[in-house]
Every structure is written in C-alpha cells, then in structure tokens.
C-alpha cells in the first residue's frame, strides 16, 4: 500500500490511510526539548514513496522510550567513552583528535552530509574512512576495525553533534555514479531467496515478517544501539545482516559496494533528522 499510485487512489476515495500496521503517530522529542523530524515528505528522487519515516516509528513503546531520554539511552555509555578517547593521545605522532580539532561540537553538520566524495581523490568516503585517515595519517596510530566499539563509539559521538539536523547528502555531480551504483544494489534481488532491499523496506514496510515489524530501513539513526547485541551497530554491519538473511554471499564491511549503498540509503532519508545514536530491538 505504499506505492504512490495506490496511495493517491486511496486519498481520492477519501478513505482513512491506516490500511496496514503503519508506523505509529508518536512524536519523537528527545530530552523533552529536541524535536526530531521523524516523518517527512520523500525526497524528489524517491519514486516509490510519498512519505519517509524514521525506524523509531516501527519499534515498540518500550524500545522507543529508551531513545527519548539520554539518561535512558544505553548507547550513551559508548558515546561518553568516545568523548574521552577524543582527548587521549595515541600513536607515534603523539596526538589526540583534540590536538588537531576544536571541541567535538565543531563537527556539527558533518554527519548530515555523509557519505560524500573526497574532492582530492574523487573517492566516496564515509565517516569511518575519515576517522581512520586521521588515525593512520595524522596520529600514526593503528586503524580501527570497522564495527569495533572504538570506531562506532566515535562515529556515534560525531553523529550526535548533528542530532536533529535534517539528512542532506549530495547525490549529484561527482557523487552521481556512486549513487547510481547504490541504487542498483538496492533494487537487486540477491541470494537464494531473491529479495532486494526494496522488497522488504519499500514494498513491505509496516508489515510483520515473522517477529519483525519492517521499517523503511533508514540509516539516520546509525550507529544504533541494538538491545539484542548490547552494542553499537554500524551501518555496514546492518547491511551485511540483511543481505545474509536473503541466503546471499554478502559484501564486506568497508567495501566500496557498501559505501555506494550507504550513500543511496542515506539519500532515501534526506529530510529526516540525524538521530544518532538510536535504540533498536
């Protein structure tokens, strides 16, 4: 029921829109003051959806509650740890993040525009790339593992500086070929189950698939704290899990394929607030 034509037809008949287990109508306000844009008009480039929703709207009241107050949000422990790491010297150059950057607040707005194309190399880069570049090139420290607690804590800390700002990744100019690649992946029916991201998150959001309430698969809340795993989950780890569940050979975390997919999926959420770190079941 989420295709534009159908929705339009229903609207014309002036029937109520609640035709399936829709996203709920709750409002996402964090700490009683930060009003999040968790429902928005779909961006122009998104042909098959009218409205985009944060994954928060598809979770149970109990899980939702953990995200509306930072004191209850279990991800904040990892964010606090990252704030300490930000000040901690590591590597042969004897530097910390704070040696080169102002306070972490100076990163406000960055996550809303990621991934982006590096103007020098022409390569698509995601936050993990920027962080590891600083670690290896400027701190002369070891690169962090993609989905490790150090890395995802730092991705979440930097993301938190943009919390509430609408996602606004560029999809044109030098980003265009990467975006096309990601789009193609999104609609490819991988694996022995022959399921694409769109089959689940575009055609069936709002529906139950076994015990899971399908969302639109947005990444504005990533890294998210997953209660089941009791840690921060990276975007690429989530992609891996979803592709694995189609009985497919997945792509690696940190692969160029997942960078492109990340850009495309991020662009589907253009207009939704950065929610990092969100809480999921």
């Amino acid at each position: 029921m989420n295709f534009k034509a159908l929705t339009a037809a229903i609207a014309m008949m002036a029937m109520p829109a609640a035709v399936m287990a829709d996203p709920d109508d709750d409002k996402l306000i964090i700490n009683g003051e930060i009003e999040m844009i968790s429902v928005a008009k779909a961006p122009e480039h998104l042909e098959n959806l009218d409205t985009i929703y944060s994954g928060w709207h598809f979770r149970t009241d109990e899980t939702q509650a953990l995200q509306i107050d930072d004191f209850d949000n279990p991800a904040m422990i990892f964010v606090d740890q990252a704030a300490d790491v930000y000040e901690t010297v590591d590597g042969a150059a004897g530097k910390s993040c704070a040696s080169c950057h102002d306070g972490v607040e100076s990163f406000a707005g960055l996550t809303a525009q990621m991934p982006k194309v590096d103007p020098e190399t022409g390569k698509l880069v995601v936050m993990e790339d920027l962080i590891n570049e600083c670690r290896t090139e400027r701190m002369e420290a070891d690169a962090w593992k993609w989905s490790g607690a150090d890395m995802q804590g730092m991705v979440a800390l930097i993301g938190l500086q943009s919390r509430g700002m609408p996602m606004n990744v560029a999809i044109d100019g030098p980003a265009a070929p990467y975006w096309e690649q990601g789009k193609e992946m999104y609609y490819t029916r991988y694996g022995q189950l022959e399921l694409s991201c769109a089959n689940c998150h575009e055609e069936n959001y709002g529906n139950m698939i076994r015990a899971d309430h399908l969302s639109q698969g947005m990444i504005n809340g990533f890294p998210t704290y997953r209660l089941k795993q009791a840690k921060l989950i990276s975007r690429h780890n989530r992609f891996r899990g979803c592709i694995r569940d189609t009985r497919a050979e997945t792509f690696a975390e940190g692969s160029d394929e997942f960078r492109a997919l990340e850009l495309y999926v991020a662009s589907r959420g253009n207009g939704l607030s950065v929610e990092t770190p969100a809480v999921r079941q």
Binding site: G191, R244, T246, A248, E249
Partner: peptide, 11 residues
Amino acid sequence: FIRPGDAYTGK
C-alpha cells in the same frame, strides 16, 4: 541466483 550464499552464513 545473484550472489547466492552458503545458506545463512553470508559466505
């Protein structure tokens, strides 16, 4: 299939 895997191992 496109990129079939070894059941649900991701491999």
